[in-house]
Design a protein around this nucleic acid. Structure first.
Lengths: 188, 188
DNA sequence: TCCTTTATTTAACGTTCGTTAGAATTTTAT
DNA sequence: ATAAAATTCTAACGAACGTTAAATAAAGGA
């Protein structure tokens, strides 16, 4: 913690403050105070406030998301999604806050238009990706489209509960809810 | 629109700007500019910035929520929830923005601790309320708790889609998703 | 050792912020 | 018509903002 690069410590504190007070509620001075460095050091490592914010979303947020999505593997689809969500509990505090800030931008509660467009693009990839996963794990369904939509909607609130509201969700509760949505896809 | 009380017009513009730029990103000057009144007029009708923000949440947001919840009546449970969500599409732009700001506070993306506590209290009432509705509309179920939880989770994302992301959700898509979650509760 | 590069600081810049004092105007009641 | 009350304005206050200039300190290689 104390030996970490000052640049990383600045970003870590920034993530905390952007989360708590938003972009405009966060000041370079407050960041510097919490990092215990002088104010211009922020400008030594980052060109300006916006660039600091942008790097958190563009680099760190999408890294967390990609890392988490890479664990989407299992032959049992209910297991697969249960673990996908349950693993979020184990993210580090920093990763959770980065994820949370990303969701804030995703809902356009913070950030600017450029970041919003990035999020829009990312969002478009969600439904097709889960449709493929579902297709490869289940028999053909007539209401496949609706099930994928419902599943993704459910996943979204589960993620929000863990990451945004910072709550722990037990594995069996996650499994129950996913099973209810996928009960038509899966042989008992 | 032009004949409305200045006090209301100020609040209307404030809702718009608090939504777009957050509490700290919104300035009294910007509000006054968009309202086309002088800056101290805001202070003539509201003691300060925080009081303006608080009134939007404490009064207007909970009014919208209560008004919407009052329509939760029907003998068919799938119809009931479908209409509950579908009706959100018909909210006025102002009501939607008020609702959106409330959700922002609910997720503690804006506002202060006091408002957050209000939201926590409100949240606690959600699950029991829907449990009662479900109980009165369906036969006894073994996994009733899980179904209520899943339903409420699904409702939350549907609300977010309409109110936060400002998208139109067609009635049949809403019905499909609610049916998937409630398929175990309802006789075909 | 001295010089160059890297890291960090103090101090300030112009701007904008929330808020208020105090005067001018408009409306209302008598 | 006139006095009182309600509304609106111009102008300013001190504080905090993002950002930068310029000086100092530390580190590393010749």
């Amino acid at each position: 913690m104390t030996d970490k690069d000052l640049r990383d410590r600045i970003k870590e504190v920034a993530v905390k403050q952007f989360n708590a007070n938003g972009y405009y509620g966060t000041t370079i001075r407050n960041i510097a105070n919490e990092v215990k460095c002088s104010l211009p050091m922020i400008y030594y490592y980052y060109n300006n406030k916006k660039e600091l914010f942008d790097e958190i979303i563009k680099k760190d947020f999408f890294n967390v998301v990609k890392k988490q999505a890479s664990h989407l593997k299992s032959d049992n689809i209910i297991d697969l999604y249960t673990k996908f969500i349950y693993n979020l509990n184990a993210l580090s505090d920093y990763e959770k806050l980065v994820y949370r800030l990303g969701i804030k931008v995703y809902l356009s509660f913070d950030g600017d238009e450029e970041l919003m467009n990035l999020m829009d693009e990312w969002e478009k990839s969600i439904l097709p990706r889960h449709r493929e996963i579902l297709k490869s794990h289940t028999k053909n369904l007539d209401n496949e489209k609706a099930i994928v939509r419902t599943l993704v909607h459910l996943l979204e609130t589960l993620i929000e509960n863990i990451v945004v509201k910072n709550r722990y969700l037990p594995e069996d509760e996650i499994r129950e809810e996913i099973s209810i949505v996928l009960q038509g896809c899966v042989a008992k």
